[in-house]
Design a protein around this nucleic acid. Structure first.
Length: 387
DNA sequence: TCTGGGGTCCTAGGACCC
DNA sequence: TCTGGGGTCCTAGGACCC
C-alpha cells in the first residue's frame, strides 16, 4: 500500500490532500473543530516530546520528513508540516479490507504485516495468457484488476511488482510508487535491477550496505560481480551466499500462507528517563502493566509462553535483554510479573532507563493445560547402549 | 530536543546429555 | 591417558523489517 497510514488519514481529512502531512508521536495533537467550523490541525512546530514519524505523505517526504525520523528533528526541518496522531485500529480495519478485496482475485496470500502482502499468481486463471503479442499481457491485466479491486474496496492506491519470485517482486513494487505496476522477468535484471543501490534489496540494511560500501560495492550489479567465495569469507557462508544469489535475482522461498507467532511483547518509552531505584514507585506500576498487557495479548491470541524476557534501553540508548525459561508455560500476569522481576534483577540497574519491555517466547497454542495425557512409551535400549 | 513499537531470524557460547 | 562427536536447550546480542 502507498504511504498507508497517511493515505488512510487523508480519507478522513480530504482537505489535507496534496499537503505535507506526517503521522506519529503521542496522543496530544488530535485535530479539533474551531468555533468557526474549521478544522484545526497541529503542525510539527507544536510538538513537544519523544517520538518518531511513523509515516508521511509524499509532499512531506519531498521536504525530507521520512518515517523513523525523530519528531523534533523533523520539526526543525519542516515546522509547518501537519502532524496527525496514529490510529492503529483504523489502519487495521483498512488492512483487512484491502486483503479481503485482493483475496477475491488471488487467494494465495502471504501476509507481511499491515500494509504488505505477497501473492502467488501462478494458478490464477488468465495469469499465464498472452494478450496480442504481449506474453505478459494476462498477468499485467490481472495486476491492474487487483489494483482496481483495492481502490474500490478502500479508496486507496497500491503498488505491485510482478516477477518470478518474492525478492524481485518486493524490489519492483517499490520502483514506480505510488500507484505503480512493474512487471519484470529474469532477462531484465541486468538492465533494470543492477543499477539500483544494494540497500534496495530486502535484507541488506544499513550495516551490511555500509560494509559493502567500504569495498566499493554500492550497486546491486557490483554485488552481483563480486566473487562469491570472497563474499562468503567476508560476510559468513550463509549471508555471503545469500548476498550473491540475491544480487542475481535468485530466490526460491515459497509463499508462507499461515504461521504461528513466535513471540509476543509490549514495551514503552518513558516521557523522561527513569532511574531503576530512584524512580521505583513510577517504574513498578509501568512494569506490572506491561506484564498484564502481555498476559492479555497471550489470552486474546490463544497462547501460553514458557520464556519470559525483559528489555531495557538505557539513557545512552544501549539495549540489554534478559530472559528466563519457566518450568511450565503460562499466561498468568502475576506469574509473568514475578519472572520478569527476576530477569530485571540480573541486569545492570545503575543508570537511567529510557525504555522498558516485557516479552514472552517459546509460545504454545492453548491455555496451558496439556491437551492430551501422553502415555508412557515403552523404550528398548539399543544393543550398544546396554550396560 | 535526537532516535517508537512490534516482530523474525541468525550467531555463538555454555550446559548438559548420550 | 588428556580427551571424540553427536545432539538439544538456554541465553544474549544484533541485523533487519513493517
Amino acid at each position: 500500500m502507498d504511504a498507508f497510514y497517511a493515505s488512510v488519514e487523508l480519507l478522513r481529512y480530504p482537505q489535507l490532500a496534496g499537503h505535507a502531512v506526517a503521522i506519529g508521536g503521542g496522543r496530544l495533537h488530535q485535530p479539533s473543530i474551531q468555533p468557526d467550523g474549521q478544522w484545526r490541525f497541529a503542525t510539527l512546530r507544536d510538538y513537544v516530546g519523544r517520538g518518531v514519524i511513523t509515516t508521511s505523505t509524499y509532499p512531506a517526504r519531498a521536504l525530507g520528513v521520512h518515517s523513523g525520523m525523530g519528531l523534533m528533528k523533523a520539526a526543525a526541518l519542516a515546522p509547518d508540516v501537519v502532524l496527525l496522531p496514529v490510529d492503529f485500529d483504523q489502519y487495521r480495519q483498512y488492512s483487512r479490507q484491502f486483503k479481503t478485496a485482493v483475496a477475491t482475485l488471488a487467494p494465495v496470500i502471504e501476509d507481511r504485516g499491515i500494509d504488505e502482502i505477497y501473492l502467488d499468481l501462478t494458478d490464477v486463471p488468465g495469469a499465464q495468457d498472452a494478450i496480442g503479442d504481449d506474453p505478459l499481457g494476462g498477468v499485467r491485466a490481472l495486476a491492474l484488476a487487483i489494483k482496481q479491486a483495492v481502490r474500490t474496496a478502500t479508496g486507496l492506491s497500491c503498488s505491485i511488482g510482478v516477477t518470478p519470485n518474492k525478492l524481485l517482486s518486493k524490489l519492483c513494487s517499490d520502483l514506480e510508487k505510488p500507484d505503480g505496476l512493474t512487471v519484470l522477468m529474469h532477462d531484465e535484471i541486468a538492465s533494470r535491477i543492477w543499477p539500483l543501490p544494494a540497500s534496495r534489496i530486502n535484507g541488506i540494511g544499513p550495516k551490511a550496505s555500509a560494509r559493502l560500501a567500504t569495498h566499493a560495492i554500492d550497486t546491486i550489479g557490483q554485488l552481483a560481480h563480486a566473487d562469491p567465495a570472497w563474499l562468503m569469507a567476508e560476510f559468513g557462508s550463509h549471508y555471503g551466499a545469500w548476498l550473491h544469489a540475491a544480487a542475481h535475482g535468485l530466490d526460491e522461498r515459497p509463499l508462507v500462507t499461515s504461521r504461528e507467532a513466535k513471540s509476543l511483547s509490549r514495551e514503552t518509552t518513558f516521557e523522561r528517563d527513569l532511574h531503576p531505584r530512584h524512580d521505583r514507585t513510577t517504574l513498578g506500576p509501568i512494569f506490572t502493566r506491561l506484564c498484564e498487557q502481555v498476559a492479555h495479548d497471550l489470552a486474546r491470541k490463544g497462547y501460553v509462553g514458557r520464556t519470559v524476557g525483559v528489555k531495557l534501553r538505557y539513557d545512552d540508548f544501549k539495549i540489554v535483554t534478559r530472559s528466563l525459561t519457566m518450568p511450565t508455560a503460562t499466561r498468568d500476569a502475576a506469574t509473568i510479573r514475578q519472572w520478569a522481576g527476576r530477569c530485571l534483577k540480573t541486569a545492570p540497574l545503575d543508570r537511567r532507563l529510557r525504555l522498558i519491555g516485557v516479552k514472552m517466547e517459546a509460545l504454545i497454542k492453548g491455555d496451558g493445560q496439556p491437551l492430551v495425557q501422553e502415555p508412557d512409551v515403552p523404550y528398548t535400549l539399543p544393543l550398544f547402549d546396554r550396560p
